[in-house]
Write a protein that binds this DNA or RNA. Sequence first.
DNA 1: CGAATCACCTGATCGC
DNA 2: TGCGATCAGGTGATTC
Length: 255
Amino acid sequence: MPELPEVETVRTELDRLLAHQRIIRWERRRADLRTPIPAKLPIGPVHGVRRRAKYLLLAVGDGTVLNHLGMTGVWAERTTIQPHDHVRVHLADGRVLVFNDPRRFGLLELCRPDGGHAALDHLGPEPLSPAFTPDRLAGRRAPIKTVIMDQRVVVGVGNIYASESLLRAGIRPMRRRLTAAERERLATCIRSVLTEAIQAGGSSIDDFRHVNGLSGRFQQTLLVYNRTQCGRCGGRVRQTTIGGRSSWWCPACQR
DNA sequence: CGAATCACCTGATCGC
DNA sequence: TGCGATCAGGTGATTC
């Protein structure tokens, strides 16, 4: 479900909520996420919440907890208990932070003592860092949409923002081997789409929610994803399966 | 090695 | 109303 803008939105909110707080207990209600949630997780003062790709890293006490929202993972501050609540994090001030994930593609694990984790080892550059250059999109023969969703090429782009970036860049998702000018345009559009989506608090197509339960606003700005009419030219949007994922594109705006 | 396919899991929706 | 088929924003294993 969540791509970079959604994870970054959650990061900001968790960081604010946990600032100057102390975790006194991790209450594990059910352990069966993508991998089992460890029985023992670090407690103590929260030093901060960082993000790498679509992963969240919570620095707590003398350890770091790695979290991925998968498709349907949501963090919420509430004391009630709901179906699919996997973990309840008890804070020293009495508040409770809950991780809820119906589809269980999420992840909650302990990082190595050095703060790293195998899941982070082969990730490409952050799209909003100078390390993400257009030449990252060269040298692959797969459809370009599959290439930009490959987390080894560049991180943070999922199905929604891949479609939106390609619409903005005027490139059809099934195209292979782009020209240098097209790679340049696409890299620029990936950055602008993600930046604007972060500013809008992410997109809530289905399950994504802020920590306070509110929806993102960027879905109002989407031009092709899950649409029948192109938000740019008004023409009919085509839907095709690429790399096993539903893909939307505009034959008039994209070549 | 890269590319393509599938599996993981629950819930919502659609057509009959 | 009920039921089966299909699909959903991610990732990783497997196969060719």
